[in-house]
């Protein structure tokens, strides 16, 4: 573990990303304490510029606090990103593991199914799904999961294909081990590194999709999110630049930070890079 941290910290940008990500998580965690009131609560001061009337980052057209919205929105974004990614990884691992391990007809069937999902442009597909299911936090999570898992399935299948003929797996066969145990206890731990890397990058994509959906008005109307604030402020961009700008920066920084951390994880976990130094 110490060794892992040493390799990770060699990449300065990754450490910076991790610091930013920790700040975002911290803000999301304490959102209820620093902004105890409902972020949807409007005030008498619409369109206050940053710093005016006690609004740190200004207020929107009906006087809602942008800073409060960003803090509460951080919670939404991170939570949706995390849950959708975990679900996508779970489904992807099952599909990929079975397809890669058994090969042949099982592989053909599972991969054709995966391809059906991959042929539809992911954002359009997500819009379609949310529109069908009625916008809510659950439907957003489901939509993001459905468009994200094929990438994991492909990756895991490739790893399993490479590992299943290794001699250590053959040794397990000669011991009489069951297929399920070989897949879970023997092969899966050997492909955790790329799964962790792709998972971390998928969190960033999930946050982008969620913001995009909220921007189009397909987010959960009862949950504050960054996309919602931007969508609400876009018609007033010329009179009140701060409404769109700050949540936009929040998205930018968070996604960038997660990508940097993902790159760092890749460097630290990728065995081929490890051999080189």
């Amino acid at each position: 573990m110490a060794d892992f941290w040493k390799r990770f910290s060699r990449n300065r940008q990754a450490v910076l990303g991790l610091v930013i990500l920790c700040v975002v998580i911290f803000v999301a965690a304490i959102a209820n304490f620093i902004f105890p009131t409902d972020p949807f609560l409007y005030s008498k001061f619409p369109l206050s510029a940053p710093g005016e009337n006690g609004f740190l980052l200004g207020s929107d057209s009906i006087g809602r606090d942008v800073a409060s919205g960003i803090a509460h929105g951080a919670k939404t974004s991170l939570l949706i990103g995390l849950i959708a990614t975990l679900a996508a990884v779970f489904i992807g691992v099952i599909f990929g593991a079975f397809a890669g391990y058994y090969g042949g007809i099982v592989d053909d069937i599972l991969m054709r199914i995966t391809e059906v999902f991959q042929t539809i442009p992911s954002f359009v597909f997500a819009i379609l799904l949310v529109a069908i299911m009625k916008p809510s936090i659950e439907s957003v999570v489901i939509a993001i999961t459905v468009v994200s898992w094929p990438a994991v399935a492909r990756l895991v299948r490739g790893e399993f294909l490479g590992l299943k003929n290794r001699e250590f797996v053959q040794a397990c066969h000669t011991l009489g081990m069951s297929d399920l145990r070989i897949m879970l206890a023997e092969i899966l731990p050997n492909c955790l590194s790329p799964i962790i890397v792709i998972g971390s990058l998928m969190v960033a994509t999930a946050i982008l999709i969620e913001s995009g959906l909220a921007f189009l008005g397909l987010g959960d109307p009862n949950v504050m999110s960054w996309g919602f604030i931007i969508s609400d402020g876009r018609s007033m961009l010329r009179v009140a630049w701060w409404i769109c700008t700050f949540p936009g920066i929040a998205i930018l920084i968070t996604v960038l930070a997660i990508n940097l951390v993902g790159e760092g994880l890749n460097d630290a976990l990728n065995p081929r890079l490890r051999e080189r130094n």
């Binding site: 001699e167 250590f168 053959q170 040794a171 000669t174 206890a185 023997e186 731990p189 050997n190």
Partner: peptide
Amino acid sequence: IQMVFQDPFASINPRI
């Protein structure tokens, strides 16, 4: 009946 394999690196699971 048991087997000993050729490659001492590939024949042992590095994670166990």
